[in-house]
């Protein structure tokens, strides 16, 4: 049974989630990938305001395809998360509680998640057509010049994710693989 998450997500709520939990996210999420993260962190360094409130926010690592007429957005699946590792700790320290992406995260990000109470969700990579259907509205709120990499405010309904790394540092990539390999030994294969 999937856990329903309504954004914004508090640190307390983030701390209740465990690696392996299936979740459905509903509410506002913000998109940002490489170029937007670089700009956000430059603003933080300068002590300037960010284009959206990061406190209790969920950021989705995605650069969607353009919407066709009648669509809120085109295809919108996750991009690989490690490229944001250099920038995530500064955002988590500012109150970011959730990140949606795919793939490995670095040690520094994980220790920052443990310290502040944040989770890393995985969405299925390469399923942009399917995931785009969960996006009800999408509006560029910053960095329009970046095209697909602009920051978008999205309203999503029942957006399917799995907790990959929780606020205690448990990692589904390790646990899932180990459980599968253990099942082979049990069945004698």
């Amino acid at each position: 049974m999937a856990i329903t998450i309504t954004t914004p997500m508090s640190r307390e709520e983030a701390r209740t989630l465990r690696a392996g939990d299936s979740c459905l996210i509903t509410g506002t999420i913000y998109t940002a990938r490489d170029a937007a993260h670089k700009r956000l962190c430059e603003l933080i360094e300068k002590g300037e305001d960010l284009p959206f409130d990061v406190e209790n926010a969920v950021i989705y690592y995605v650069g969607p395809t353009p919407a066709k007429p009648g669509q809120a957005i085109g295809s919108a699946g996750p991009t690989t998360a490690y490229r944001m590792d250099a920038y995530s700790p500064a955002l988590i320290a500012r109150g970011l509680t959730g990140m949606i992406g795919k793939g490995f995260r670095g040690e520094e990000v994980v220790s920052c998640m443990k310290e502040h109470g944040a989770v890393y969700f995985g969405a299925i990579g390469g399923c942009g057509a399917l995931l785009g259907k969960c996006v009800r509205t999408s509006e560029v709120i910053a960095y329009e010049d970046l095209g697909a990499e602009a920051i978008r405010k999205m309203e999503v309904v029942d957006f399917p994710v799995t907790v990959i790394i929780d606020s205690e540092g448990n990692n589904l990539y390790k646990a899932g693989r180990a459980a599968y390999l253990a099942s082979l030994n049990e069945s004698g294969e």
Binding site: V62, T65, S75, G77, T79, G126, C127, G128, A129, G132
Partner: peptide, 8 residues
Amino acid sequence: GCQAICQD
């Protein structure tokens, strides 16, 4: 829907 399989 002749929709991109992946956003990339």
